[in-house]
Amino acid sequence: MKKIAVFADVQNIYYTCREAYGRQFNYRKLWQQLQSQGEIVTAYAYAIDRGDQQQQKFQDALKHIGFEVKLKPFIQRSDGSAKGDWDVGITIDVLEAAPDADIIVLLSGDGDFAILLDKLIHSYHCEAWAYGVPSLTAHALINAASRFQAIEQDLLQ
Rank of each mutant, 00 (worst) to 15 (best):
D79C: 11
I103W: 15
K3Y: 14
V105A: 04
K119T: 11
Q54L: 10
A8F: 03
S135I: 09
D102N: 14
I92W: 00
D154Q: 13
A61R: 07
A101G: 03
F113M: 10
V94Y: 05
N143C: 12
I104S: 04
W86T: 12
T137H: 03
E68A: 14
Q56P: 01
I142P: 07
A82C: 11
D110I: 06
I142N: 01
F67R: 07
Q53I: 12
E19M: 08
S78V: 07
A114E: 09
I48E: 02
Y124A: 05
Y44S: 01
V6K: 07
L156C: 06
A128H: 08
G38H: 06
A98S: 14
I151Q: 01
F67Y: 14
R23Q: 14
R147E: 04
G66E: 13
C17D: 12
G109R: 04
K2H: 10
W31I: 11
L106F: 05
K57E: 15
F25K: 00
I151P: 04
I90K: 01
D118E: 14
Q32L: 10
A97P: 11
Q32P: 01
Y124E: 02
R50T: 14
F74P: 06
H64P: 00
K63N: 09
A130S: 09
S108N: 02
Y131G: 04
I13Q: 03
I104H: 07
G111P: 11
D49C: 00
P73K: 07
W129D: 00
A101M: 01
L71G: 10
K83S: 06
L107T: 06
Q32E: 13
L107D: 07
W129M: 00
T42K: 05
I40K: 11
G66N: 14
V6Q: 04
I92C: 02
F113K: 01
D79L: 02
L71S: 12
G66A: 09
M1S: 11
I4P: 09
A114S: 15
D102E: 10
D9Y: 11
Y27P: 01
R18M: 08
P134I: 04
A5W: 11
A43N: 12
Y14T: 13
A43G: 12
E152H: 06
P73M: 05
G89M: 06
A43R: 03
N26W: 08
S108P: 09
P73Y: 12
L117F: 03
Q37D: 07
V105Q: 07
R50P: 01
D110Q: 08
V105Y: 14
I92V: 13
L141R: 00
L71D: 05
F67V: 08
S135C: 14
K29V: 13
T16S: 08
K119W: 11
N26R: 00
I48H: 01
A101H: 06
Y21G: 02
N26P: 00
T137R: 05
S78E: 10
Q32V: 10
F67H: 10
Q76T: 04
Q55F: 03
D93S: 09
D52R: 06
A82E: 06
A128Q: 06
K119N: 08
